[in-house]
Nucleic acid binder design. Sequence first.
DNA 1: GCCAAACTATGATTCAAACTCATAATTTTC
DNA 2: GAAAATTATGAGTTTGAATCATAGTTTGGC
Lengths: 306, 306
Amino acid sequence: MQSILELRHLRTLLAIRDTGNLTRAAERLFLTQSALSHQLRLLEEHFALPLVMRKSSPLKLTPAGDKLAQLADAILPQVAHAERAIAKLREGEAGQLRIAVECHTCFDWLMPAMDTFRTHWPEVELDIVSGFHADPVSLLYEDRADLAIISEVEDNPDIACLPLFSFDMVALLANDHPLTAKPRLEAADFATETLITYPVADEMLDLVKKVLKPAGIKPQRRTSELTVAILQLVASRRGIAALPRWSVQHYLEKGYVTARPITANGLIAELHVAVNKGREETAYVADFVQTMREVSVLNLPGVTLL
Amino acid sequence: MQSILELRHLRTLLAIRDTGNLTRAAERLFLTQSALSHQLRLLEEHFALPLVMRKSSPLKLTPAGDKLAQLADAILPQVAHAERAIAKLREGEAGQLRIAVECHTCFDWLMPAMDTFRTHWPEVELDIVSGFHADPVSLLYEDRADLAIISEVEDNPDIACLPLFSFDMVALLANDHPLTAKPRLEAADFATETLITYPVADEMLDLVKKVLKPAGIKPQRRTSELTVAILQLVASRRGIAALPRWSVQHYLEKGYVTARPITANGLIAELHVAVNKGREETAYVADFVQTMREVSVLNLPGVTLL
DNA sequence: GCCAAACTATGATTCAAACTCATAATTTTC
DNA sequence: GAAAATTATGAGTTTGAATCATAGTTTGGC
């Protein structure tokens, strides 16, 4: 008659409620779908009550499952808070976290993540290292940054690399652009177009690096600092752009511009975090990475944790 | 960097804080001392901080351990509450629990336990089956009671028997009684004394059943319903009594009467719960047994859980 | 201060819970 | 109604949590 309930089960319930789907819940917890299915069955046997309604998609919680999810909502934040408090006991409250960013759109999700982090670690000094750097990792070496957000895994024994998430990039066309006739764009389609981008070097654009350069295509470029401005240019037929789908979801829904996948598999961009080796074990650094992942997956549509 | 913390660990921390002692904490959790030692080491490795101060008896928690204990205080009641809520979903709120009692002193600890239980299960009708019954188990058979508190394990396939706790009985003497000269009393010492007891049959008195009858000794009896009255009689040299130590602790501390162990090993009494087979799985019945154990071990000195 | 008793730590071993894998069964979608 | 996606299930594996046996410490009495 002893209780078998553990925090693990509460985390599972929340993941199921949030994703409405065992398979995705399992991914979020870094477990297999099978593990969750077994776990759930054991819990339901223990309480002798169903916890989720199987005959519905998305999966919904039963009243009993809901009670547990409410419990989870109530206590998991307390647990996280206590763990942070202990990390602070060990390391002290203070510290600094200078963030180097190489991609413009990052700011969209970085800001909310930083806000959340600030409430957990008010004594940690948060900074964004100004300007955009071709090689943010060198900033780590020079101790001008503590954490870099990069788009390719850095294979380097002095650097620890942690995965953030991936998302797909889409080509953006004016609604009446002739290329909208195609279901997807290939490298060749860009040859005669003007490419509208943020003002960064070629090698920092995933589209150029992964698609156009391999195909030997070098379209005209035009740049703008702001996402809205880029969209404005696209809409007025000055060229085409390639941006993360989540950053333009809103404009697509309003019908301002049209999106098309790039290449048959889509153009998938990844983001990673780089820190000087060993630094990833500092509690507030680990917590910041965790926060970036959680906040982003929550706010950005179509983002997948790595 | 994933958290390994589980509810199990929080329960351990509380047990350590409450008992100040790994060995007793382990008993309380029905684990070995070794298990707790390993568990604690793993936790401390995880947080890279000591959680309890080893060089002190009783064991004390470090600030980090204290943080976790506070967390436990905050969330374990919530967990228990949610589990009861789910049990109620399954079984409905209501039910009845008629308690048959065979021992007089039981009321001292039964009342607080019933009070606690009532706050958890307000819709369960609590009753004490009036009068004292030589055979409370027969009340279960006749469905005149749902739960009996008995002093010997009932070996019966229709009855489920659950352990409560044990405690030692002491002989009570007037402070100037000649027998106070002896470090302990043996059966023979009772031969010429008047035994003051509650008004119950011989076979329900542990002293008679386990010590005097086997020795063929049958002292004079005098009875009283009330513990204070019995003590009053003892103090005024009308005879000697045998009562649970915890029920007279208070009077002993004030020096009203003197206590002596009975026989070399002491006279250990046990209490158990009997319910009709299967009934022990009803959530509120299981919870009542749990409550009786917890409340008693908390309030009564020298009581050991079975 | 020393000895016995009580308590805690540790390594080896056992055991069971929890996970993965492979695949069957079911549900959803088009 | 077929294909795709999702969930369930049984077998097998891994992991970590427990026990056991015992060594090492601490405490308390004399």
